[in-house]
């Protein structure tokens, strides 16, 4: 049986509509992430007027460091997240953690409440203190590039 298209649609038009419908989703995730980073930048500036932007390199150093100043079972970020941001992690209770890298988990760092909650908990667990806005901004900047 032959299928007939009743409304003539130009293929280019279909592609354009599809592309447009996808744009806002992509745009909003990175927009939300940028807003969160901008919030950290505001706070970092308040603390230090000489603040000159976040650094992915510093974020990487923080992620890979082994401070061991927090709780004994979690000496570093990599204890649970593994040393590769693109790889899955595992909680101490054996549950899988989605990769931290934004390229692998696009919804990472798009929910401000969630971001603050996990920095609060995990910085206390790993560092024994809350993280500074500079550390949080560096960390998210690093993971956004991964």
């Amino acid at each position: 049986m032959k299928i007939r298209i009743i409304v003539p649609l130009h293929p280019k038009l279909i592609i354009a509509v599809l592309a447009l419908s996808l744009l806002p989703i992509q745009g909003s995730a990175s927009e939300l992430r940028q807003q969160i980073i901008a919030g950290f930048a505001q706070d970092a500036k308040l603390k230090n007027s000489g603040f000159a932007g976040f650094s992915a390199g510093r974020g990487q150093t923080l992620f890979l460091s082994k401070p061991a100043t927090g709780k004994p079972d979690t000496p570093s970020c990599t204890t649970c997240h593994s040393i590769n941001p693109a790889a899955k992690g595992q909680t101490r209770a054996g549950k899988e953690i989605a990769p931290m890298a934004v390229s692998k988990t696009p919804e990472r760092f798009t929910d401000s409440k969630k971001v603050e909650k996990w920095f609060r908990r995990n910085c206390k667990s790993v560092l024994g203190r809350i993280c500074t806005a500079l550390e949080k901004g560096d960390f998210v900047t690093f993971m956004s590039n991964q």
Partner: peptide, 10 residues
């Protein structure tokens, strides 16, 4: 929960 089996889960 602030010290939940060795982690901060507050």
């Amino acid at each position: 929960l602030a010290n939940h089996f060795g982690e901060d889960a507050s």
